[in-house]
């Protein structure tokens, strides 16, 4: 597959812009980056024996941390923006980082992009959480850039050690 440097650059810049929207708490604008038919999914992972790792993650249609279409995603955005969102009062300082960006596939107007992420959250005084994992995104090319059609978030933790995961990845 031939990949041009310009496309790689555009995709990276898009992911960085998207991360900035989250860190600036501009959730509605962030939400507008998703397509009408989007799917936002974080399966549940568990520790498995060697050679049984293929069963680490729950499958589509089973229990997940997030299994959201546009309507569900929008409710989560509304919750974060509610004046009663105690978890945002005061808002934690967050930093979304994505690295190791690789374009896996280009198919018509859809680009499959893999990256690693590190999401740091610092709440109140000294509460710190790190969420680390891998993401698989399907971006769709539109006039003004890209829209996110699918996001799969594969967290490395099997036991969540943060008090909640009320933010987006």
């Amino acid at each position: 597959m031939f990949l041009n440097a310009e496309l790689c650059h555009e995709v990276e810049q898009f992911l960085y812009m998207e991360a900035a929207l989250l860190d600036e708490h501009r959730y509605t604008e962030w939400f507008e980056l998703f397509t009408e038919d989007c799917h936002y999914w974080m399966p549940v992972r568990q520790t498995r024996l060697a050679r049984q790792e293929d069963a680490e993650f729950s499958q589509q249609g089973e229990i997940a941390f997030f299994d959201e279409g546009r309507a569900e995603l929008e409710k989560r955005v509304r919750k974060l923006e509610s004046p009663y969102a105690w978890g945002q009062s005061p808002a934690p300082r967050t930093r979304h980082m994505c690295t190791n960006v690789r374009i896996a596939e280009v198919h018509d107007d859809e680009i499959t992009v893999n990256c690693n992420f590190l999401f740091y959250r610092c709440s109140l005084e000294v509460e710190e959480d790190y969420f680390v994992g891998r993401r698989e995104d399907v971006l769709r090319k539109v006039d003004q850039g890209f829209r996110i059609a699918r996001r799969t978030i594969l967290l490395d933790q099997t036991v969540i050690t943060a008090k909640n995961m009320n933010h987006f990845f």
Binding site: P43, V44, Q46, S58, Q59, E62, I63, A64, F65, T158, V159, I160, T161, K163
Partner: peptide, 9 residues
């Protein structure tokens, strides 16, 4: 249903 959520507080 597969997918047991484990979470520490």
């Amino acid at each position: 249903i597969p997918g047991i959520i484990r979470h520490r507080l």
